Measured scan of single mutants.
Amino acid sequence: LSCHYCHSLFSGKPEVLDWQDQVFQFCCRDCCEDFKRLR
């Protein structure tokens, strides 16, 4: 899998964000929080 925010590859459990009828996967909570802050 690749992170939607930083595009790094990861194999662990992703942080998942269901936002505006789309599902995004992130490598860590920090990337998820940064993505939400920018949107």
Rank of each mutant, 00 (worst) to 15 (best):
C32Y: 11
Q20G: 15
V23A: 10
P14M: 05
R29G: 09
C27Y: 01
L9G: 12
C27I: 01
W19P: 13
Q25G: 11
S8V: 15
C27H: 02
C28R: 11
L17V: 08
F26E: 02
L1C: 09
C27A: 01
L1F: 14
C27D: 03
D30P: 05
S2G: 13
C6K: 01
V23W: 12
Y5M: 15
L9H: 11
C3Y: 00
C32W: 03
D34H: 07
D30C: 09
E33R: 05
C28W: 00
V16S: 09
F35E: 05
W19A: 13
L1W: 01
E15N: 09
D18H: 07
Q20Y: 04
C32Q: 07
H4G: 15
D18P: 14
C28L: 01
S11L: 03
E33P: 01
D21M: 11
P14A: 04
C32T: 06
L38C: 12
V23F: 11
Q25S: 10
H7N: 12
K13N: 05
G12E: 10
F10T: 05
C27M: 02
E15W: 08
G12Q: 09
C31T: 00
C3R: 00
H4F: 12
E15T: 11
F35K: 02
C31M: 01
C31H: 14
C3K: 01
G12C: 04
S2W: 07
C28P: 01
D21G: 06
C28H: 07
C32H: 06
W19I: 14
R29F: 12
C31G: 01
C3H: 00
F26Y: 03
R37A: 10
F10P: 08
C27P: 02
Q20H: 08
D30W: 04
C32G: 04
F10Y: 05
S8K: 15
S2Y: 15
Q20W: 09
Q22I: 07
E33A: 08
R39E: 05
C6A: 00
Q22G: 14
F26R: 02
H7Q: 06
C6Y: 01
H7K: 10
S2V: 12
S2F: 12
E33V: 07
C32F: 04
F24P: 03
K36A: 07
Q22A: 14
L38Q: 14
E33L: 05
D34I: 05
Q25M: 13
F10R: 02
G12W: 04
R37Q: 14
Q25P: 07
G12Y: 01
R29H: 14
C28G: 11
C3E: 01
Q25H: 12
Y5A: 14
D30E: 09
E33G: 05
V16G: 04
R39Q: 15
Q20C: 12
C32E: 04
R37K: 03
Y5G: 13
D18E: 07
Q20R: 13
V16T: 08
F10C: 05
L9K: 06
L9W: 06
L38S: 10
R29K: 09
D34E: 09
W19Y: 14
L38W: 14
S8W: 09
C28M: 12
K36D: 06
H4Q: 11
F10W: 04
L17W: 06
C27W: 00
E15D: 05
S8Y: 13
C32I: 06
H4I: 07
C6S: 00
C6H: 01
V16H: 08
G12M: 05
V16K: 06
Q20D: 15
S2T: 08
E15L: 09
D21A: 07
L1G: 08
V23E: 14
D34N: 09
C32R: 05
R29W: 08
L17R: 03
R39G: 15
D18R: 13
Q22H: 14
D34L: 07
S8Q: 15
C3S: 00
F35G: 03
K36E: 09
H7C: 11
R29C: 11
D21N: 10
S11E: 04
S8T: 14
K36S: 08
C6D: 00
C31Y: 00
D21V: 03
D18I: 08
Q22S: 14
D21Q: 10
D18W: 07
S11A: 03
G12N: 05
L38V: 09
Q22T: 13
L17C: 07
L38G: 13
S2R: 12
W19L: 15
S8H: 13
Y5W: 12
W19T: 15
R39C: 14
C27Q: 01
K13C: 06
P14K: 01
L38K: 11
Q25K: 12
L1K: 09
V23P: 11
H4W: 11
D30L: 09
Q22L: 11
S11Y: 15
F26G: 02
S11G: 05
Q20A: 14
C28I: 01
D18Y: 06
V16N: 08
C27E: 01
R29V: 13
H7V: 05
E33H: 12
D34S: 05
V23Y: 05
Q20N: 15
D18N: 12
F24R: 10
C28T: 12
R39K: 05
C3M: 02
D34T: 05
D30I: 04
Q25F: 08
G12T: 10
D21H: 05
V23N: 13
E15I: 11
H7I: 11
L1P: 02
D18A: 09
E33S: 04
C27K: 00
F35A: 07
R29L: 09
